[in-house]
Design a protein around this nucleic acid. Structure first.
Lengths: 150, 150
DNA sequence: TGTAGTCACTATATTTTCTGTAGCCATGAG
DNA sequence: CTCATGGCTACAGAAAATATAGTGACTACA
């Protein structure tokens, strides 16, 4: 979605960066470690190299991934998530969790430690308390006007 | 993305349902309560009625929203999220949270109760313990083979 | 009545984006 | 030399999105 939504909303702004076709799947792959051009090509049957190239370039421009050269001279690069990119893990996690419950019941999202199915929760680190979804809101940082729920 | 990704992955499957342009913004709006055609049109400058109509129809087919008639005879409907749709709140929340940190710093995602900024965490309800993101995995429900991290 | 306006869409032409496939350059293996 | 591999780039054609106009069924008002 290279076109902008023209909204002062963090959801819309995020989607302008990662909401285009394929982008979140690339990030999903990158959460498993560095990936090369061919890795994506193998893991995502159907993505045209043109588009893969383009998506990686845009993600790099936005500071979501870094290109790391493991060979000069035939220039050979691999892509690594930045911290900013790694924090998209919750978006992928939320999609995976929802998908596993509602669309692709063959899978579930589990903890590698205990093996049980995990869920997402909102948490207030200041109060050390769980916050329920229905009371979570988007606010302006300095002023106080509420905008939208999520 | 009406085209399928052709992957047995809950992230890919979720994106096939909600990953198209505008869809997640419609869901964001619907999390705030029932909405009518004109409400979307007002809140999303730029979405063509053709596309709005189409997106709503697809979401209805997938059981994410319900069409509720508040008038017969000029048939006038409003759209409401189903439980399945409401559970997408975490996807929106994750996008909002990431966006507020990295893209649209003017906003933050807060608890309506205490007013502090909230964060997302994985939680194992069986063990009643927090699970950190790096150990969260997607598994096949019956068999045991690991697939991907998130 | 007649005129205007609202609401929920549908139709259509144009623009943009995505797909599919071919090709290029550098290197390494045989 | 020839072929293969990796990391791309260059198109042409297909598909999707945008912008805008229009329809049908009313309601409100003069």
């Amino acid at each position: 979605m290279p076109k902008h939504y023209g909204q002062a909303c963090p959801v819309a702004k995020s989607l302008e960066l990662v909401g285009e076709r394929w982008t979140l799947l690339l990030i999903r792959d990158l959460l498993g470690g560095p990936r090369r051009f061919q890795d994506f090509h193998a893991s995502l049957p159907g993505i045209a190299p043109t588009l893969l190239s383009e998506r990686l370039k845009v993600m790099e421009e936005h500071g979501v991934v870094t290109r790391r050269f493991y060979s000069e001279h035939p220039p050979r690069a691999e892509y690594v998530l930045t911290e900013k990119g790694r924090e998209l893990g919750f978006v992928i996690g939320a999609l995976a969790s929802w998908g596993a419950r509602h669309v692709h019941r063959e899978t579930s999202v589990v903890s590698g430690d205990c093996g049980h199915e995990v869920e997402l929760r909102y948490f207030c680190p200041t109060c050390s308390k769980r916050v329920r979804g229905s009371s979570v809101t988007v606010r302006r940082r300095r002023g106080a006007r509420k905008t939208r729920r999520s």
